[in-house]
Simulated assay, not measured.
Amino acid sequence: MGEVLARYADDKGPTLASAETLAYSIQALAPFWGGLTCDAVKGSTCRLYERERAKPRKTETTSRTGKTIIRTRAAGASTVRRDLGVLQAALNHAHAEGMLIHPIKVTLPAAGDPRDRWLTRSEAAQLLRHAEPHVQRFILISLYTGRRESAVLQLTRPRVDLEEGKIRFRADGQAETKKRRGKMRIPKQLRGHLRRWLRHPGTHVIMFRGKPVNSIKTGIRRAAERAGLEGVTPHVLKHTAITWAVMDGVSVEDAAEYFDTSPETIRKHYWHHSPHHQERALEVIERRR
């Protein structure tokens, strides 16, 4: 399995938009799976991996002041599903490349119900007020564009066209994935911020100490703690952007086009927030005599 994971990382890693996420998952998978043979992949070992990942582990990080911070964390079901999804992809690749004679099926843990956490406008204002400048940029871009963390952090200056009023979140030559990035028009509220930010030098729109930012999770978490908010992650900002648009009356088709998200996803996860939700059915029912 170690060879399978290494081959997948070498062959696919350079072509993926989420190469860092892939590397993180492989680092988590390797200690458990690396020494096993591929025929050991079955339901029982997948469930054992889930239990192992659920055990609290201490991690050490160093703050900007040089202080060592120790945190205890355990992987949740969604993280395990992501890890095992990478394991399945690696096995599929190994089979396609002739390393395996037969395909091998990975058993995934059950998917939990999606969290419906989104920020009110007052919560968003509080988060902004307590965030560092580069985190504020991320928050504003996320709330106006509804793009994923990686798409926002990897946004380079040449892909922001203030004259045409458009942003290209996907780089030239970058393969599109199911987690689409696409192109969008810039709202006038965000255009003013971008114009001010782009006056400063740098390769990316979001920079910290002169360098691009690889992850904003810690910055968001700290801002949320200072603001007294719970359950705030970068994905919550994307969820908030689409929820606000739907609450303001944007249709399924327009939301899907603007946020480069499928209509099915809009209907499944956001449409219940719309003032038009079940509107036509309600009109018909209320016309009954």
Rank of each mutant, 00 (worst) to 15 (best):
T145P: 01
P187W: 03
Q174V: 07
R221N: 11
A175R: 09
E149V: 01
R191N: 06
H200R: 12
V160R: 02
H200Y: 12
R195Y: 01
P158L: 05
K183S: 15
P201R: 11
R196H: 15
L140C: 08
R199E: 14
I139L: 08
R170L: 12
L155F: 00
E176W: 02
Y144F: 11
Y144H: 13
R191P: 00
G146N: 06
H193G: 02
G210N: 04
H200F: 13
R147H: 06
R222P: 00
S142N: 09
N214Q: 12
P201A: 14
Q189R: 12
R168G: 09
Q189W: 05
E163K: 09
P158D: 05
H204S: 13
P201T: 13
G182K: 02
R196P: 07
Q174Y: 03
Q174K: 09
R157D: 07
V213P: 10
T177K: 00
K179F: 13
M207A: 12
E176L: 09
A223C: 08
T203I: 08
I167Y: 05
A171E: 06
T156Q: 05
I220E: 14
Q154M: 10
L190F: 10
I139S: 08
K179T: 15
T145K: 00
R159C: 14
G173Y: 00
V205Y: 02
K217H: 10
E149A: 09
K217L: 11
A151C: 12
L162Q: 06
F169W: 07
F169N: 04
K179L: 15
S150P: 06
H204T: 15
V205H: 03
I220M: 10
K211Q: 11
V160Q: 03
L198A: 00
K179Q: 14
